[in-house]
Design a protein around this nucleic acid. Structure first.
Length: 209
DNA sequence: TCTATGATCCCCT
DNA sequence: GGGGATCATAGAT
């Protein structure tokens, strides 16, 4: 298993990173409670020019500031007053591009995840949704700004390979307020995976690009 | 200071 | 397929 280094995150091609993250592992290790999950769904947020992004129009606030750092950090924020959403900061300093992790498949530490979710969910559904996966992995807003190349939390490649035709795209979820940008096919997932969050009409990979 | 509002999820009908 | 939970943030006063 190989930890993803800063170079992975600091590339300029946001959509490529969003697709590359599919199949990668998220490892968290809080006080010895180690959990590992495989990313199966992501969404790209293209910063200043993206009406769906928190940093649209170059809005710098104490919350969004972390996105302006060079890639390789976590951006975590609270949604609906309840859910902690985990994003990966990408690109170089000054460009607030992020990738939201929307769903994961539990791989290791299942008992910790089930305990954190606090409910007897099916294994494949423990990380099926952006709010659920942070709960299962123990990630919260207190972790915003944390390095993804450290030891507490990091992403890794275990050699899992995806075929190009296993990756499908769709418009992003819950961003209807973003007008025409809500239609951008910036959500990527592993085709027909059991841990995908919500069902929507997907677009075949051939139609995007 | 005050207020509306979400990059959600679950339970109920 | 509708509504409630629950609160930091941002923009308005």
């Amino acid at each position: 298993m190989k930890k993803l280094d800063a170079g992975f995150y600091q590339r300029a091609d946001l959509l490529q990173i969003s697709k590359d993250l599919l199949g990668k592992l998220i490892v968290t290790n809080w006080d010895g409670e180690k959990t590992i999950a495989r990313i199966v769904e992501t969404e790209a947020y293209e910063g200043i020019g993206d009406k769906a992004a928190h940093s649209y129009g170059d809005r710098r606030t104490s919350r969004t500031e972390v996105m302006y750092n060079a890639g390789g950090l976590a951006y975590v924020y609270l949604c609906y007053g309840i859910h902690h959403l985990f994003n990966v900061v990408t690109n170089s300093a000054g460009i607030p591009h992020v990738v939201l992790i929307r769903a994961v498949e539990p791989v290791e530490g299942l008992t910790y995840m089930a305990k954190r979710i606090g409910r007897n969910d099916h294994v494949h559904r423990l990380g099926a949704g952006p709010g659920k996966l942070t709960k299962a992995l123990g990630i919260s807003v207190q972790h915003t700004g944390i390095s993804l190349t450290g030891n507490k939390i990091y992403l890794a490649d275990d050699g899992y390979k995806l075929m190009q035709n296993e990756i499908v795209a769709s418009p992003r979820i819950g961003v209807d307020y973003a007008g025409d940008h809500a239609l951008w096919p910036y959500r990527f997932m592993i085709k027909d995976h059991l841990s995908i969050s919500v069902k929507t009409k997907s677009i075949s990979n051939l139609e995007i690009s």
